[in-house]
Design a protein around this nucleic acid. Structure first.
Lengths: 106, 106
DNA sequence: GCATTATACCTCGTGTTATGATGTATTTCA
DNA sequence: TGAAATACATCATAACACGAGGTATAATGC
C-alpha cells in the first residue's frame, strides 16, 4: 500500500482495532496486518498521539508475568471513526474523478 | 477533508486533472476544487515532484499575453493512476474493517 | 483615472508524521 | 543454550501540505 495513502487510514484503523474490545500493542499489529501492516514504532507513535487527543485511555495489566498496556476507545475516538465514515462519500467522488473515462485514450 | 487522508489522494488527483487534456496550474486548482481544494503552494510542490518522477512533462505557451505552463501526463503518470485503481480493493477492505459491526455497542 | 479582483506563476519555513534503527526484558521452544 | 516470540519504548530522519510572502498582467467596477 502506498505510504501516503496509508497516512489517512492508519489512525482510524488503530481505533477500529480497539473499538469492539480493549486491545494492546502487539495484538493490534497482528489484527491490522491483513489490512495495513505497520511497524511497532509507527503504532506506538500513533497510540501516543491518540492518547494525547483523548481518543483512547490506557490501563496497565499483568498477563502471564508480563505487563500489557490495554487501550480503550473513548467517545472522541468513536467520533473520529464516525467522521471517517462521513468522509467516505467524498473519497468515493474523488475515486470517480480519478477513474472517469479518459477521452484522450478511451 | 482530513489532511492525512488528502495526502494519498492529492498526487493522483493532479494526474487525473491532466489525463484527458493538458492543463495548467490555475485551471488544475479550479478543476480539483469540488473534489479536493488545494492551495497554490501545495499544487506547485506536487507538480515539481511529479515532473522529477517523470510522471508529467511541461511546456510553456503564451495565452492572451500571459505565459502558461501546460502539463502533459506521461506513461509513468498513467501507470500511477492504474496503481491507484489497483489499490482500491485494499482501501475497500480497510473501510470494511473500520466500519464493521461493533459488538461492544452494536 | 484608480482600485480591486482574477489570472498565473514561484519560494521558503514550519509542523506533522511514518519508519528504520536501536534498546530493554520476559517466556517459550528446539 | 540460543533463537524466536511476546511486549514495551525512544530517537533521528525524510517526506510532505500549507501558510505567508513575492512578482506580474488583464479585467472589472466605481
Amino acid at each position: 500500500m502506498d505510504i501516503q495513502l496509508k497516512r489517512g487510514l492508519l489512525e482510524v484503523c488503530v481505533l477500529a482495532a480497539i473499538k469492539s474490545e480493549d486491545s494492546y500493542g502487539y495484538k493490534i499489529i497482528k489484527d491490522m496486518k491483513p489490512y495495513i501492516p505497520l511497524s511497532e514504532s509507527t503504532l506506538y507513535t500513533i497510540l501516543k498521539r491518540l492518547e494525547s487527543a483523548n481518543m483512547l485511555t490506557v490501563r496497565t495489566a499483568e498477563h502471564d508475568g508480563r505487563l500489557r498496556k490495554y487501550y480503550h476507545i473513548t467517545g472522541a475516538g468513536q467520533k473520529r471513526i464516525e467522521d471517517f465514515k462521513n468522509q467516505w462519500n467524498e473519497i468515493l467522488s474523488i475515486y470517480q474523478f480519478v477513474t472517469k473515462e479518459d477521452e484522450r485514450n478511451g
